[in-house]
Amino acid sequence: MERQSLGFTVFLYVCAGLLAIMILAPFAWLFIMSISSTTDLVSKPLHWWPAETNWSRYRILTDLTPNTHGAALMTALVNSIEVAAIATFASLVVSVPAGWAVSRTPAVGWSLWLVIGTYMLPPVALAVPLYMGLAALGMLNTKFGLALVYLTILAPFTAWLLKSGFDPIPRDLEKAAAIDGARLDQTLRIIILPLAAPVIGTAALFAYLLAWDEFFYALLFTSDHRAKTVTVAIADLAGGRVSDYGLIATAGVIAALPPVIFGLVMQRTLISGLTRGGVKG
């Protein structure tokens, strides 16, 4: 390592400090708003720290009494968890064999590119027929219908990640299995999947976060508590009749907690996935 001058070291720490503030300040403010009294939030000059903390909004928003703000948000939260889980599972089911096939048979690589190419389609280009199609199938405002649509966002992504994850697994293993008389699906299940477990985990995590974040399709294809996801629910809450900014901030904190905690706990997995996707291209 090269020697660093004192000036450079100071410069480094100043930059690092600024970066930390830049990242953390908005989060901190969201949290402070969620525990400030309404009076503090609408005072001029603004009170940066509440005179006394007020946690009541967390109670309001986690209250499960039917037909309340809390019930609406919690139901949406559960819907989000379910929709994201169904979509993630389904996307793995289709993209594990696909990623494997492309990894082993480069000749069919074009098909993966075709699938990845769909990433360029803006959701608005598919929304109208999807809407009409879901309507015809009676799947509008259902979790399953929404998950099916999410599959189209997740599958290209997971297939791509999985293909690059399968690539380094030696083929000799498969050949040996074939000689032992294993069928293709057995090979995949017994030999490949355990080896590829980490990359499958990464893909699943990404898929889950992507599905959690989705807003546009959820806005169009859900209409009430039966399928409405948390992103739509908090957009509705914030756009509606709420005179208290703290309540909006609290809803934001609640909706952000799952992915942010996921992100922090699983950061190594996430970063490896991000950079795998990015660097390998």
């Binding site: 953390l24 989060f27 969201l30 807003f215 948390v230 942010v260 992100g263 922090l264």
Partner: peptide, 21 residues
């Protein structure tokens, strides 16, 4: 480096709300 993941993991809609506030 760990903090860096936070803004990325924040749902887009929550990010939008946060900045609107």
């Amino acid at each position: 480096r760990a903090l860096l993941i936070l803004p990325w993991a924040l749902p887009t809609v929550v990010n939008a709300l946060l900045w609107r506030l």
